[in-house]
Design a protein around this nucleic acid. Structure first.
Length: 645
DNA sequence: GTAGGGTTAG
């Protein structure tokens, strides 16, 4: 065993004999005896109990040769049960002996354990003292000089202590103190271990202290200890996670690694691949996976899962499945996440058949479905219109011992609200409250939208106020639902009033808010006002293509082709490309004016651009030809549509 | 206590 290294053979024999195992006696006595630095370490009974310790019994704990005492005391401590340390209450010991004395004893123990590499015990001791300092609001900065004890540092022991202290501070989110230990350790001419620095870095990032993390990382690169592959992977994760992916910074990490001679690991790559997928660079991500396959670089499910997820999010389930199967063909078994991602993808599309096929595969592979997977299935069944079956599954899960969570409840509540089945939604809502779940913004949003769907605007507004009363800030989604309903009911003035109100409450209207207004203005043939609103909005931020499509559609409906084209050009000028809806609206424009050649030109053009015409596009074209009496072309298009759909 | 991933609305 490593901790026996360097011990004399007699002592080693004694330790290995098991004679001194499970003897918490020593610590208990030490901590319960009022002891001064000059008091002998061992009582007479202890000298009997620990014969080998007797020869050191005259050595004071805090003598001038303190550091020589540590390894000796370590031999004694090793013979005790390590649990003693973790069970020891710093607070109680301080109560018994008083702070000034006990902290001295405590320092000795920390050093004793550090000197023999018993890091767990050092961690436990320091965790105790830091918790005490926190509870009594003491100055953490005292701990560093205190642990030094006013002496020159022992190179190995001090590093072992400060490394753990850094970790304890980091684990408790005491970052200033953690960084202080890092810089003070270096000031003493010592080098903290890169492991502890990595842990501090990871904790900083975990608590959104990105700036501090970056500063620490830069410090490590320039002044050491040199970052290792873990350090780079942690930093890679900073730039690749969450909503704000910074792919250029992430790519710089790879460059930094190259310069420093560190090779990216499969974790570094999988994190980068995740960032690429989240940042919208799916093709590059897939390219990296393929290259890793070609180069026989180690790959695992972490590399494939983000790619599968990104394809699912785009609704490209065929591609997602292809990657999933490709991964299996490469000898990498899909894990629970791989299945979960793909299952959710199928469910979001309401593809019950493929979902259940995958469920069977999961069961065959020995992967047990969890509540997350079942939540996906609940959604899938509802998306396929099988709400009753979804509810049955929901009930069956409870009967099988699964515990529903907020998400599974919210999923079903939301789906029932979406089809306006407010009775079923209310029953579930009551049930979830009965089981102790507090409706959150999502629950309220769903129910408010449900009420709006079925025309219960009064009830929706009531719930909207309840939300505010219980301290839930309605999100922009909830505001939009209300604004949308009010617009649909034709009360433009009230809708605009609400938009001011939401701004006053710090919620910025988004493209969807304005879409509701633009749609209403167009429906009321007030296209000029809608155009004016769009031009104002463009100045404030990017408008979703739906706003332009609704606008252009309104102009076409009002037979204002010139204005429609102008809006279309304006949209292109902003760098927004025409989508299937825009093409369809423009095709409708030409069909109305019997300009079928132009309509055909657009129809062919969209296909050339890779935009697949949908049912609306086909039927618009077909209606145009039928109006012209060209049944041959009309039927040809009907055949083509049947073939493609 | 040196690194990475999946579930709820328009």
């Amino acid at each position: 065993m490593q901790i026996f290294k360097g011990l004399c053979s007699e002592t080693k024999c004694l330790l290995e004999s098991g004679l001194f195992k499970n003897r918490p006696l020593f610590l208990e006595k030490i901590s319960s005896r009022p002891c001064h630095s000059a008091t002998p370490v061992f009582s007479s009974e202890e000298q009997e109990a620990f014969p080998f310790a007797a020869s050191y019994s005259a050595t004071p704990v805090l003598s001038s040769e303190e550091q020589d005492v540590f390894p000796l005391a370590a031999r004694v401590v090793k013979s005790l049960d390590g649990q003693v340390i973790s069970k020891m209450s710093f607070r109680n010991a301080v109560k018994v002996h008083g702070f000034p004395y006990f902290i001295d004893t405590f320092r000795v123990f920390v050093h004793v354990f550090a000197s023999v590499g018993m890091e767990r015990e050092v961690y436990s001791l320091l965790f105790n003292v830091v918790s005490y300092y926190q509870a009594f609001d003491l100055d953490m900065f005292e701990l560093f000089p205190f642990l030094l004890g006013g002496k020159p540092p022992h190179p190995e022991i001090s590093i072992a202590v400060f490394d753990v202290l850094m970790k304890v501070f980091a684990a408790n989110s005491l970052f200033e103190s953690g960084l202080h230990v890092f810089y003070q350790t270096k000031k003493l001419g010592l080098t903290p271990s890169i492991r502890s620095c990595n842990f501090l870095l990871k904790c900083l990032i975990g608590k959104s202290k990105a700036d501090s993390a970056r500063m620490l990382f830069e410090d490590l690169k320039t002044h050491g200890p040199s970052p290792n592959v873990y350090t780079y992977s942690i930093m890679m994760n900073l730039y690749c996670r969450g909503q704000n992916v910074d792919i250029s910074q992430a790519t710089d990490i790879l460059e930094d690694m190259k310069k420093s001679g560190e090779s990216p690991s499969v974790t570094t790559y999988s994190t980068y691949i995740n960032g690429l997928c989240r940042g919208g660079f799916l093709d590059i991500a897939l390219g990296i996976v393929r290259e890793m396959e070609c180069r026989k670089h180690p790959l695992n499910s972490y590399c494939y899962n983000p790619v599968i997820s990104a394809f699912c999010q785009q609704g490209h389930l065929c591609e997602a499945l292809e990657v999933f199967e490709g991964m299996e063909n490469n000898g990498i078994s899909p894990d629970h996440h791989s299945f979960g991602i793909l299952l959710d993808g199928f469910c979001k599309q309401g593809d019950v058949e493929n979902s259940f096929h995958l469920v069977r595969k999961m069961l065959v592979s020995g992967v047990k479905l969890n509540i997350v997977n079942y939540s996906s299935l609940l959604t899938g069944l509802c998306k396929a219109g099988l709400h009753d079956f979804s509810l049955k599954l929901f009930r069956g899960l409870s009967a099988s011992g699964y515990k529903h969570d907020m998400i599974s409840y919210n999923t079903l509540v939301n789906e029932f609200c979406m089809i306006g089945d407010m009775d079923s939604a209310s029953k579930l809502l009551e049930e979830m409250i009965h089981y102790g779940y507090v409706p959150d913004s999502f629950t309220f949003g769903s129910v408010i939208r449900g009420c709006c769907e079925v025309g219960l605007l009064g009830k929706a507004k009531e719930l909207f106020n309840v939300m505010k009363t219980v301290g839930l800030l309605p999100s922009v989604f909830v505001w939009n639902v209300i604004v949308d309903r009010i617009c649909k009911e034709g009360d433009l003035e009230q809708a605009l009033k609400l938009i001011y109100e939401m701004q006053d409450q710090g919620i910025l209207p988004n493209s969807r808010t304005y879409h509701a207004i633009i749609k209403r203005l167009c429906d009321e043939k007030m296209s000029e006002k809608a155009l004016a609103l769009i031009s104002i909005m463009v100045k404030f931020g990017s408008l979703h293509i739906n706003c332009f499509n609704t606008m252009i559609n309104g102009l076409v409906k009002q037979s204002l082709p010139r204005e429609a084209w102008k809006a279309c050009k304006g949209m292109l000028g902003l760098g927004i490309s025409l989508d299937i809806v825009t093409y369809t609206v423009l095709i409708k424009l030409f069909c109305r004016t019997n300009e079928m050649e132009k309509a055909w030109f657009l129809f062919a053009g969209m296909k050339k651009r890779g935009l697949m015409p949908d049912v609306v596009t086909y039927t618009t074209m077909m209606a145009g030809y039928r109006k012209m009496g060209d049944m041959v072309r009309c039927n040809a298009l009907a055949d083509e549509m049947r073939r493609r759909m």
